[in-house]
Design a protein around this nucleic acid. Structure first.
Lengths: 172, 172
DNA sequence: ATGTCTGCAAATCCTTTGCATTTTA
DNA sequence: TAAAATGCAAAGGATTTGCAGACAT
């Protein structure tokens, strides 16, 4: 699921398709937005680059070697990154969010396994038609949210049936 | 946004398109599922029938004349209703949910105004193609979530700009 | 009669806020 | 050195849980 918010921030320009984002370019974007490049921020960006897929705040915090920075800082940094369009936030059914680097391309959509919680990307899926209609109806600042859920093949063995679901059944 | 979960519950059959759900048929489904038809449950179903659109738990609780039942009971009843497919739950960006009667037809999609939080229905929008692909990939128990956000026409006046957004900006 | 709900209070979970201290530019 | 970021502790809001009493069947 993706929150494809259209940022109004002047510095929220996405990187060009041709040149993939690097840790350096990400830092430059921070500086360009009058934000400071600190050790926690670099570490957090690092985990995002390492995953290249949606990660939870909790996960990132644990990934940070010896939890080098406070959970609160992770929250604040990601909110800051999102405000300049550096990361994209995905809202899950269970009320939590995942963050991923915002590439220059259109937002990606995912399938989330109800059992193990793993996410997989899914091919292009267009919602522009619907948004166009909404614009015609007078809506502004459009954004949307699309997410698919299911049980992935590896999780369909009997053994998995007794596992605690990553996303409790009653919430999905 | 809609959580179009495919319930596996034997009694979760939806009412036939031809015959719209009534308070009576809803109660019958409760009984059929070995659930009891209590005063709070009837009242809650009542507010759902009255709205015929997604409603928040808080909203339902306030609607109940003199808050005739506890907020906790509203939570529990809705969870119970959802477990037998009587209602559909929608998860909002701000971490809360909306519930609506599960009609026999395909799930409806909505636009949620970022300012006032009002929801409007949007015309058919198909995700079956994507789900079909996922089935081919081996996923089972598919469900999905689709929601659009924007600022509705009435909320675009200057006055509205200072209003506290129903969904804080940093969450959408 | 009995297994199911309900209400109330308290607990939990995730996220945000306040503020003094540290850090970056 | 001035503005911005961090850590820690504590607040906040939504939802859940435990348990004794009330209720539907």
């Amino acid at each position: 699921m993706i929150a494809a918010t259209q940022s109004n921030h002047p510095l929220a320009a996405v990187s060009k398709p041709g040149e993939p984002m690097t840790l350096e370019s990400a830092c430059m974007r921070l500086r360009a937005a009058q934000m400071r490049v600190t050790k926690p921020r670099i570490a957090i960006l690092g985990t995002l680059f390492r995953h290249q897929s949606p990660v939870s705040i909790e996960q990132m915090h644990q990934d940070l070697a010896n939890k080098s920075c406070d959970l609160v800082t992770v929250y604040r940094c990601l909110a800051a990154f999102e405000s300049i369009g550096l990361v994209r936030r995905s809202f899950l059914h269970n009320g939590t969010s995942l963050y991923e680097l915002a590439t220059g391309c259109a937002p990606n959509y995912h399938v989330v396994c109800k059992t193990c919680g793993k996410t997989e990307q899914i091919e292009a899926f267009s919602v522009t038609g619907v948004e166009q209609t909404l614009v015609e109806r007078g809506y502004t600042q459009l954004s949307h949210l699309v997410e698919f859920f299911g049980v992935c093949p590896p999780c369909q063995q009997t053994s998995a049936r007794n596992a605690t679901p990553a996303i409790p059944d009653n919430r999905v």
